[in-house]
Amino acid sequence: MTLNSLQKGKSATITTITAEKELKNRFNSFGVVKGATVHVEQYTLAKQTMEIRINKTRMALRVSEAEKVEISQ
C-alpha cells in the first residue's frame, strides 16, 4: 500500500521509500524515513496534493510523490 491511498485522519508506518535520489533526500530531511509513523491531515479537493504529519513536522506533498512511499497500517 502506498501513502497516497491512506485515508484522511489515518496513521501508518513507512516501510520503504521507492523515490529517486533527489526526492528521497528531500523526504529524508523531513523525517519521511523507514519506520516513521505518518499521519494524513488533509487532501485537497482535487486530490492532487496532500498534507501529512510525521512527529512534529507537517508537510505538503503531491499525491504523485506520495505514491513512492510504501506503508503498512
Binding site: E22, L23, R26, R58, A60, L61, E65
Partner: peptide, 10 residues
C-alpha cells in the same frame, strides 16, 4: 518536476 514536498510551518 522538482519535488514539491514542502514544510507547513507552525
Amino acid at each position: 518536476d522538482e519535488p514539491f514536498v514542502m514544510e507547513m510551518p507552525k
